[in-house]
Amino acid sequence: MKKKKIISQAAMITALGVTLVVVLIPICWAISMSFDATTIDVVPNPPRFIPKEFSVFNYKYALEAIPIIRYYINTLLLTLINTCIAVFTAMTCGYAFSKGRFPLKGILFLLVLAVMMIPFEVRLIPLFLQYRDWNLLDTWWPLILGSFAWAYGIFLARQFIDSIPDSLRESASMDGAGEWHIFFRIILPLCGPVIATLVIFQVVNQWNNFLWPLVVVSSPRKQVISVGLAMFNASETARYLGPRLAVSVLGAIPLMVVYLFLQKYIVQSVMLSGVKE
């Protein structure tokens, strides 16, 4: 019996392993090609997975051709700012909707939920024109101000805070603590998991944010990395295989690094978010 199990396990692991390798082939190919000096303009045929002539020329060229460091910095800053704002406001609103008692609570929450059903694209044009009238186009304000109302985050936060027992709050309130005090001292420390989840979602969303920065930001100096990479794609030099792959790899590195360090939390958050629906 045991032997059968070992064989079937081995078979399963092999099958999964082969599938995994096939799935990861594009990544390996891209990385190895980007370090190959002979791939400047021609796609090697038959395909190679090990560079024929190892060199970092493609990367040097990529770093020169597009201001990728600038894009990194821009995206990092924007991610940091937006994550702080979005997660913080999600938590405050989540707390208010969960534990608060005030008039029109139900309606206000409905207004928040309704936003989730309105696709962003519906308000794209008027929002664009509005920012133009305020002279805020080609600055970062349009990319930041939206973070104050993250409907999905509010929803998740509220759901989580619901599960915190009221007794904790009430005893503090009895002692004369104000709501903000309770929020910072008692509620937030207990919200580790949901804060982690929200942070991870925000970071990934911000890094992949494309349409809105594309519309709102025109000067390359202020652009984020996803749009910056796409702009490179359209330029003359994008015909060259090597630099293009180098650029792709460079664009993907930061999130990969985050992933490698925080894999456990990320995977956990994803699985949690699915079940809690």
Binding site: W29, W207, I225, S226, L229, R244, S248, A252, L255, M256
Partner: peptide, 10 residues
């Protein structure tokens, strides 16, 4: 986890 744009380029 890889940025969408990079994936398309590849």
């Amino acid at each position: 986890i890889i940025t969408g744009v990079s994936i398309v380029l590849i």
